[in-house]
Deep mutational scan, measured.
Amino acid sequence: MISNAKIARINELAAKAKAGVITEEEKAEQQKLRQEYLK
Rank of each mutant, 00 (worst) to 15 (best):
M1S: 11
M1F: 13
M1V: 10
M1N: 13
I2Y: 05
I2N: 07
I2V: 08
I2L: 12
I2R: 05
I2A: 09
I2M: 15
I2K: 06
S3A: 10
S3Q: 10
S3V: 08
S3N: 10
N4T: 14
N4V: 13
A5Y: 05
A5I: 10
A5G: 08
K6W: 06
K6D: 07
K6N: 07
K6S: 08
I7A: 06
I7T: 05
I7F: 05
I7W: 11
I7P: 03
A8S: 07
A8L: 12
A8C: 14
A8D: 09
R9T: 01
R9A: 02
R9I: 02
R9C: 01
R9F: 02
R9D: 01
I10S: 03
I10L: 15
I10H: 04
I10C: 14
I10V: 05
I10R: 04
I10F: 12
N11W: 15
N11K: 15
N11M: 15
N11A: 13
N11S: 09
E12L: 09
E12A: 07
E12T: 05
E12S: 04
E12C: 06
L13I: 02
L13T: 00
L13V: 00
L13K: 00
A14E: 13
A14P: 00
A14I: 10
A14R: 13
A15E: 08
A15W: 10
K16S: 02
K16N: 02
K16H: 03
K16I: 03
K16P: 00
K16D: 00
A17M: 10
A17Y: 07
A17K: 05
A17T: 06
K18Q: 08
K18W: 06
A19R: 08
A19L: 12
A19C: 09
G20I: 01
G20Q: 04
G20K: 04
G20V: 02
V21M: 08
V21Y: 05
V21W: 08
V21L: 12
I22E: 01
I22A: 04
I22D: 02
I22M: 07
I22K: 01
I22N: 01
T23I: 01
T23V: 01
T23A: 01
T23Q: 02
T23W: 01
T23D: 03
T23G: 02
T23K: 02
T23L: 03
T23E: 02
E24Y: 05
E24Q: 09
E24P: 10
E25P: 05
E25R: 07
E25Q: 08
E25W: 06
E25T: 08
E25V: 06
E25A: 10
E26W: 01
E26Y: 01
E26A: 00
E26Q: 03
E26P: 00
E26D: 02
E26H: 00
E26V: 00
K27I: 12
K27Q: 08
K27S: 06
K27L: 11
K27N: 04
K27H: 05
A28E: 14
A28W: 12
A28S: 09
A28G: 05
A28R: 13
A28M: 11
E29M: 03
E29L: 04
E29A: 03
E29R: 02
E29P: 00
Q30V: 11
Q30Y: 15
Q30E: 09
Q30T: 03
Q31D: 11
Q31Y: 12
Q31V: 11
K32A: 11
K32M: 12
K32R: 14
K32F: 12
K32I: 11
K32W: 11
K32D: 05
L33P: 00
L33F: 03
L33E: 00
L33W: 03
R34Y: 14
R34M: 15
R34H: 13
R34S: 07
R34N: 07
Q35F: 10
Q35K: 12
Q35D: 14
Q35N: 07
Q35M: 13
E36Q: 07
E36S: 04
E36V: 04
Y37Q: 08
Y37F: 11
Y37R: 06
Y37L: 13
L38M: 13
L38Q: 12
K39R: 11
K39A: 15
K39F: 13
K39C: 14
K39Y: 12
